[in-house]
Amino acid sequence: MLKKTLVAAMAVFLMFGCESTDDEDVTEAYNFVTENVKTGPTVYFSFADNAGDTVDTGEWDIAFATFSFSVPINDSTMMTISNPYLMGALNLGVARVDAASLDDVIDVPGSFSTGVYTTIEEVDNWYTTTDAHIVQPLDYVYVVNTDDGKYPAFEVTNYYDDEGNSGVYTIAWKYLSE
């Protein structure tokens, strides 16, 4: 009996031990909330600064925006529709990982796709709209290969502010170690 208890206690100790070693590798997770990009300008975000700017200085990784377009209602009239739009910077490497939460992503993916920012299709498809016309993030985490050689991973957690207005992005992100 005593022997069994000791073994169990050791097992528990070992488990905790493993976890604490992992903890040292996992970097801190951050949140970033944009201003309303539907009513205001596009927000250009840099992971290195964990901050956004409304001016395109060229020093950014991803940009949060809405994309408006007009559709013909009938032969003579057009109507404007706004959709969320998330862009990666020029030649930014992006990998999409199927994961429900940022916590589930630990390793850097093997390959990244790059392209002119408007064509990184993976990023632009981060959401779906429900029957009630609510923008809802899909279960994707994006891993980005930035210019400084780091691998931030991020997920869009919300597209609405506390008052339910659309156009306000919230992302959760962290650096992955190689």
Binding site: T130, A132, I134, Q136, N158, Y159, Y160, G164
Partner: peptide, 9 residues
């Protein structure tokens, strides 16, 4: 109550 994730109706 209908759960719409971001919202609740």
């Amino acid at each position: 109550t209908t759960d719409l994730d971001v919202f609740e109706d």
